[in-house]
């Protein structure tokens, strides 16, 4: 929930203050997540056995790094709380979150599609999975019309089958063939 152009551009100190408080609140959550995570990882690293051959074992460096991270996150979180209290205008969080998600709906849709694509890649093979991914992703980003559908199909074909052939033939990089097409 960092400041978007439309938020920062909003005239008036009140809107700016609210926006800043929301940003700080979002970051505060990230500091807490990273802080707690690093405390846990520092503890896990401390469980690793020490070495007979050196003063620092395998766990010492990660323990040190995650301890430093926990301290930094704590400092940042305290600072964020002070800032939020100073601004004192932390309202409309729900609607801000909805707007934040709405702005990024295509980004999240593309990421979801990428996750499905990566999951399907070993089974469907590079060419088929990539063709479907490219086609859907292009139509998600562009407005659907007869022209964009035709353009997307052509582009998807070139960059799925074409790239596969290019990498296999020219660079000797063999992309997943897929369980469906193996043998």
């Amino acid at each position: 929930m960092t400041s978007r152009p439309e938020e920062t551009a909003t005239p008036g100190a009140f809107a700016s203050g609210v926006s800043r408080a929301r940003n700080e609140f979002a970051r505060l959550i990230s500091y807490l997540v990273f802080g707690l995570g690093s405390v846990y990882l520092s503890w896990r690293a401390g469980q690793l056995p020490s070495s007979r051959w050196e003063p620092l074992g395998a766990g010492s460096f990660p323990k040190l790094v995650f301890a430093v991270l926990a301290i930094l996150c704590l400092m940042a979180a305290v600072r964020a709380v002070i800032d939020i209290r100073k601004i004192g205008k932390l309202d409309g969080l729900g609607s801000a979150l909805c707007r934040w998600i709405k702005i990024r709906r295509i980004s999240f849709a593309i990421f979801g599609l990428l996750a499905v694509y990566l999951g399907a890649l070993p089974y469907a093979g590079f060419s088929l999975a990539t063709f479907v991914f490219l086609l859907i992703a292009q139509l998600l980003i562009a407005d659907i019309s007869k022209k964009t559908v035709i353009q997307s199909v052509i582009a998807a074909l070139i960059f799925s089958v074409g790239l596969n052939m290019l990498f296999a033939g020219v660079f000797n990089v063999f992309l997943p063939r897929g369980v469906l097409f193996a043998g």
Binding site: L134, Q138, I141, S160, L163
Partner: peptide, 19 residues
């Protein structure tokens, strides 16, 4: 247009990570 660039570059990233 972005509709061609973004997904295609994503595929190139996937190839780079896999290769």
């Amino acid at each position: 247009p972005k509709q061609f660039i973004v997904p295609t570059v994503m595929i190139c990233c996937v190839i780079g990570a896999f290769a």
